[in-house]
Nucleic acid binder design. Structure first.
Lengths: 368, 368
DNA sequence: TTGTATGCGTTATCAC
DNA sequence: GTGATAACGCATACAA
């Protein structure tokens, strides 16, 4: 049976050590021979507060150092509403067993930028393995321990996020997201990137192109399509209704025959969107191979993103890379701004164009 | 006597809303017509505390729900004298750009186990990019913000660790480590694992074996050698002085001639230790190839660990895998125990034997 | 069974 | 310059 802890220290003894065992400002004060408030002032290093004598200052600093004093984040947050901690919350495990699905590249940027700005990171072990506060209705509540929080993953519950946002708690979502309203996010500029890819193909001489995409309404998908169409428009191909091929199962529907039909119609370049599964790109590559088409001689291919792992060994696709690390950094920048009460920073991060080896000039008319 | 003006709410009105604008227990209490303490009790839903009438219970729950009450984690942790935070400190960036060198597999286990136990993680951006508390002499001081801390990487400064340990701050190092004294660690059981590999080779019929190792005094190296020797001992080969080949540069010193010499002497199996560089295994494979030896027909090979990235494509080596994920989990288990004031848990984690394809029965005497 | 009184460690505001 | 002292929001021993 555990000894029922005494209700704090009965007497007014100078508190040898708090419940936590960790030294507190009171002890630093005692050791330095000053008051606790003075310690707080010295450690806060305020510009405008009461000036403190250099001597006192040193005494306090020395005492704090020798005791290994570190402010309690909870108390700090409670009293001052800030503790220089930024939260990171993901709705799947932050470190999934399969590295491929991981947020790793983002975290590289997150860590770097946070360090740069003097923030430490709290990784909220979210709904991952069913631990901490898995399905609890206020699973997200814990993030309020930090000054603000970054959210990763698609499955963030709207209701809880809405609550945080409504309360004015600084929140940034990694990846574009329209709900709840008012949620801040940072994301890749797929529109510009897709447009640039089309522009590249056009500069090689291509005019008629087809975009292969899955049946998905995610912003990442619609943005790519938008950019693709803008790119076509820019080269005077904006009025071609068949320029977008949309299928719930491209690997089934994108047959070699269909491909040959397009080619016969004068299409010379094909663009695939990137998705989790990579189905569009896989379907495209397979159809090209099955149809015996030589790429990039007979047709050019481009991928709006990176290839899935199983196709990573093939020729480097023309397209763009998603700047995951920079996205992570941008998210932290925005979060830091919100925490400081400033305006949100620019949400869009530019993608990096990748020339690749799957595109070239279109075959001269009459070839093949 | 003049009434000292209150800082926050001037009157003693029942606090319509705190700084945060979010409802507090006091308001829930007011709405439910009970005291704040009762609200706390109801919401805590304790098993053993004072029982509360179902009616009150419902009133409180209803009030809390209608107000959208969400507990403040900072206040909660402050009052409970625990912040349920475990630190993770690495001396290189926790998320290095090159994923290969990363702590990723460990973090998988760390996250999982921490979540399981209701802890969140604080990532201290150690000496990484020069952020938070970069090269500061007390860079490690920050970790005291957590309830305990996990250290990754070889370069933990002994002095500062000693200080933390001396202060009774719960610290666990990932990887065996003898200094400072009293430091807790978890590590892979290389001794048993190496012994098991030798046992496997022996069971195939091998008797004379040679261990190729680098000139390194790290515990991970000496443990492997120890296990290797124990394994030999177990099959009556304990008195062979030439069983360990040690070189500062195995890729230079392990020549095909030397290999043939060993074979001529009756050695039928070769074991390489795993190191950062993978030099021992690389040297061994190259010498075998250069000498035109067929593995596993003419000689068996084993690797005490995993192959370096550049040799990952070769045949799977007989040997063992380091259970990195389980190591991470074990580290958290131990840290949690220390935080709870309990005894440290078992530091050794078993490796996983890997049959592989580089070993088989020794050639019959007289073959080749 | 419920209410009262305190304390958790910090910050911030005042008098001295 | 320095030291009381009052919150911050919640938990809990103890009285009622």
């Amino acid at each position: 049976m555990e000894e029922p802890r005494k209700r704090a220290r009965p007497g007014r003894a100078p508190a040898p050590a708090g419940r936590t065992g960790r030294p507190r400002q009171a002890e630093v004060a005692r050791l330095a021979g000053v008051s606790q408030a003075t310690v707080s002032l010295v450690l806060a290093d305020k510009r405008q507060g009461p000036a403190i004598s250099e001597e006192t200052r040193q005494k306090v600093l020395e005492a704090a150092r020798s005791l290994g004093y570190v402010p309690d984040p909870a108390a700090r947050r409670l009293a001052a509403a800030r503790n220089d901690l930024l939260g990171v919350f993901s709705f799947t495990a932050t470190f999934p067993t399969d590295v491929r699905h991981s947020y790793y590249p983002f975290l590289v940027g997150v860590e770097r930028e946070a360090a740069e700005r003097g923030y430490d990171l709290v990784l909220f072990t979210g709904s991952s393995t069913g631990g901490a506060g898995a399905g609890a209705p206020d699973a997200l509540g814990r993030v309020r321990l930090a000054d603000g929080c970054l959210f990763l993953g698609r499955h963030a519950p709207v209701q809880e996020l809405r609550r945080l946002v409504a309360d004015g708690f600084p929140v940034v979502h990694l990846g574009r997201r329209d709900e709840p309203e008012g949620l801040h996010w940072v994301g890749a500029d797929y529109v510009s990137a897709a447009r640039e890819v089309v522009g590249h193909l056009a500069s090689l001489g291509h005019r008629r192109m087809v975009l292969v995409r899955e049946d998905d309404e995610a912003p990442a998908s619609t943005d790519r399509e938008l950019g693709f169409l803008q790119g076509l428009e820019a080269v005077g191909q904006g009025d071609n209704p068949g320029a977008v091929f949309r299928s719930a199962d491209p690997e089934r529907d994108l047959t070699p025959e269909r491909l040959r039909g397009w080619l016969a119609d004068g299409v010379t370049a094909f663009v695939a969107e990137e998705t989790d599964t990579g189905a569009a790109w896989r379907a495209l590559r397979r159809a090209v191979a099955d149809a015996g088409i030589d790429c990039p001689r007979d047709a050019s291919l481009a991928l709006l993103g990176s290839p899935p792992a199983d196709l990573a060994d093939g020729p480097e696709p023309t397209g763009f890379d998603i700047p995951r690390t920079r996205l992570g950094a941008a998210a932290v920048r925005m979060l830091a701004a919100l925490v400081a009460g400033e305006e949100a920073t620019e949400p869009l991060v530019a993608c990096t164009f990748r020339p690749g080896a799957t595109s070239g000039p279109p075959p001269a008319a009459g070839d093949h």
